[in-house]
Amino acid sequence: MIIEANELSKRYKMPKRKPGIVGGLKNIFHKEYEEIIALDKICFEVKEGELVGYIGPNGAGKSTTIKILSGILTPDSGECRVLGKVPYKERIDYVKDIGVVFGQRTQLWWDLPVIDSFELLKDIYKIPLGDYLKIKKELITWLDLESFINTPVRQLSLGQKMRCELAASLLHSPKILFLDEPTIGLDAISKLSVREFIKKLNKERGVTVILTTHDMDDIESLCNRVIVIGKGKILLDGSLQSLRNTVSKDRRLILDYDGGNGGISILGATPISKENNRLVIDFNPDIITPADLITTLSTQYKIKDILIENPAIEEIIAKLYGEFNI
């Protein structure tokens, strides 16, 4: 096991804000705190070479987990071992072997060419010159950085910046890569190329990847395993399919039509909305196949356009929440 987390718990104290001038003055001298449970006895293991999606709504405990695993934060109780080390006890020794990318923050030097940040990282991580040159060359080719490697970071697009971030966190050949929202804010093409790269890295280099995201497409195209966390507890740990199956097998059909009418009473299909010549239906593919559903509908409507999608991650998680009564 490359990661072992055993009953990790973490609580935060949040100061209570009192309203008004009097309250504000009271706050200065005497603060009251509210306790928030961020993690509640979390257990999981990750094997070497896995690509795990770690998902959950904001405030569920995702970033707390990542912080503990990467050695920034000490848990209140429980323990974890990553690469055989306790991250928060041997910080300097441990972080040599991991890479972390935060989607919304940069580790690159804003006013300097990208290559300068790489040079600095070389010294920070004490990468031997030979290794550095070799890895740098590989990453530049893989991520196609050549054309802007000498451009100051502030002039790069978000997509270019993210590619450089990825390269920067891989220069020291980490065995584990933590990615926190790596595709946030990127345009469609950049998202694809980032995903391609992560996949390749995992397959060809065997780098273990832990990915947090809100983007269902990230999960769908990358992860064979997902861990869902909610209110500090692991709600589900398994394949993507098992996540869907646990919650609901429903898929969603969106249909634009020009004319036609009639009630919808098809077994296995539930109409969600119907307005402005757009019909939205959730259906269970085990009961009715998409082909059958469309055939049936085409007798009633003059179909202009059709889209079938998976329910958004937020919806699945909302349903999962309902099931767990949280």
């Binding site: 912080k67 990467s70 050695g71 920034i72 910080r91 300097i92 020794d93 972080v95 040599k96 991991i98 972390v100 935060f102 923050r105 580790q107 920070i124 991580y125 004490k126």
Partner: peptide
């Protein structure tokens, strides 16, 4: 506030130097 200190903690060097 900007999270740069977390980044510093993720690197194998002393916080003071960084």
């Amino acid at each position: 506030r900007l999270g740069d200190f977390d980044r510093i903690l993720l690197r194998p060097r002393t916080t003071v130097l960084q």
